[in-house]
Design a protein around this nucleic acid. Sequence first.
RNA 1: GGUCCUGUGGCCGAGUGGCUAGGCAGAGCUCUGCAAAAGCUUCCACAGCGGUUCGAAUCCGCUCGGGACCUCCA
Length: 501
Amino acid sequence: MSLKVYNSLSRQKEIFTPINAPYVGMYVCGPTVSGESHLGHARPFITFDVIYRYLLQLGYKVRYVRNITDAGHFEEEGREAEDKISKKAVLEKLEPMELVQKYTNLYHWAMSRFNNLPPSIEPTATGHIVEQIEMIKKIIADGYAYEANGSVYFDVEKYNTDFSKLGKPYGMLSGRNLEDQLDTTRELDNQEEKRDKNDFALWKSAPPEHIMRWNSPWGEGFPGWHIECSAMSSKYLGEEFDIHGGGMDLQFPHHECEIAQSTVCNHKTPARFWLHNNMITIQGKKMGKSYNNVIKLTELFSGDSPILEQAYSPMTIRFFILQSHYRGTLDFSNEALQASEKALKRLWEAYEWYSKQIFLEGSTASDKTLDEKVQKLVTEFDEFMDDDFSTAKVLANMFELSSFINSIKDKHISVTAISSATALLLQKQLKVYLEDVFGLIGERSSDYGQLDGVLQLLISIRKDAKSKKDFMTSDKIRNELVGLGVQLKDEKDGGTSYSFN
RNA sequence: GGUCCUGUGGCCGAGUGGCUAGGCAGAGCUCUGCAAAAGCUUCCACAGCGGUUCGAAUCCGCUCGGGACCUCCA
C-alpha cells in the first residue's frame, strides 16, 4: 500500500516518494495579512493540515513551511503601484507593522480554533528581504531579469525560449503557452517599463508615499509578489523539495512564476508534487474579495452576518470541508453547514461512547460476517487516505461504523458479535483518524467539570421527581435545560445522559 | 477570445464501466410516562441527445447549463 497524490504538474495521480525519506519538505502558501481571513481561506489551511497530519501518521518526518505575506502585493499592477498593506494602514491610521500584527494574531487565533497544527516554520516576507534581493541579483546575473527605473522585471520570453528546450516552458504547471497569452491579452496602461506584457515584477521601486520600503541595489522599494515564496522555500526546504501546496487560484500566475524564478536560480523545478485545493463557492460562485461574497471567520464563529442563519463552530466547518474531496469545489449554504453540524454530533457521540468501552482481549466473534465487515470498513480508512486523501470516503465508512456502535449501545447487537481484536482495532483507528489525522476535537466549555457537577445534580433531582411520577417537575428541568442548550436523554439502562446542542 | 473544470435524488456531497457511498431533510415502525436520541425499514438520481460496449453516472461526440484561470485572490 502506498500513498498516491494528484500532482497538478503531471495532471495525474502519482505514487508519493520523498526525495530523502523519511524526510518530507512541504511548502504551503500562507495568508496575506492585510485583512481578515474568510471561509475560503480556511480550506487550504485545513486541507494541508490534514495532509501534514497524515504524512506524520505515515511516519514521515515533515518540515512544514507556511509563510506569512506581510509585505503586501500590488493593488493593480501597471496602474497604481501601491502596496495593499500600506494603503490600508493609512486609512486606518495604523503603522503598517501594527496592522500586520493585528491580522497575524487574528489568523493564528482562527488557525488554533480550527485545531490546525502550527507549521514547523512560519517565515515572514519582511523577515527575508535580504534573501529575496540575493535571489533577484542572481536572476539578473544569469540574464533573465532586467532593471527599469528602479524596478526589476523577470524576462518571461527569454526564459520560455531557453527552458522550453529543456522541456520546462513557462506555463508548464497551469497548462498554458505563451503564444496564447500574447494573442489574447487586452491592453494595460503604463506598461512601458516592461519589455513584454508577460514579464512580472521581482522588485518594485517605491513611490514617495509608500511606507513599506527597503534599500536595494536598485534603489528603495519592495519585493514583487512571487519572489518571497521562492526565496523562503529554497532557504528552508532546499533547491528541490517534495510538496508545494496552495489554492487553485494561485496556480497561475503565482506558482508558475515561482517555478520560473527557482528554475533560473537552482536549475531545478522547486517542488516535485504540486497540490492544489479547489475553491469554496457560495451560490455556485467562488468566494472571494472581488465578488464581495466573503464570510469572515469571525462572522462564521459568531453567526454575526446577514447571510448566516446561525453561528457555526470551527469543528463544524472543519468537518464540512473534510466531507468533500479537496480538489472539488465545495458550495457553502446554511443548509449544508447545518447538516454537517448534526452529522458531526452524531458521529462524535458514537465515537466518545465507544472509546469508553473496555474490551477483554482474546474473545472471538460470534458473528463472523459482521466481524469481517467491521474490519473491512476500518482497514479502508488507510486505503482511502492513500488515494489522494479521500477524507469523504473515510467519513462515510465511519458513519456506517457509528450505526454499528449505536446498535451495540442500544443492545440490538451483542458486544461479542465481533472479536475483541476487531473491537480494539476499531477503537484505536477511530481515535487515530478522528483526532490525530482529521484533527477533530470535542467541543466542551473550559469549566466543564463544574458544569458537569451541576448537571448531575439536576439529573438526580429529576430522577427523584420521575420516580414519584411528578412529571411536571421532571419535564420542567428537561425543557428549561433545552432552552439553555443542554439536551437530556433517558438511556435504556435507566441512566440519563446529556449533550450540548 | 484563449486555457481548463464541471452538471449525481428536496439539499450537500462520494463515485475506479457490471455489485445502486455517506450525511441532512421526508415517511413508517420499535423503544419511551411523554420527549430526545438511537435502531430498523422506506421514498427520491445520475442535464439532454447520439455513439462505443454483452453492460455506461462512469468512455467518446454533440447540444444546453454552471464555474475557474487568463488582473490581487486560498
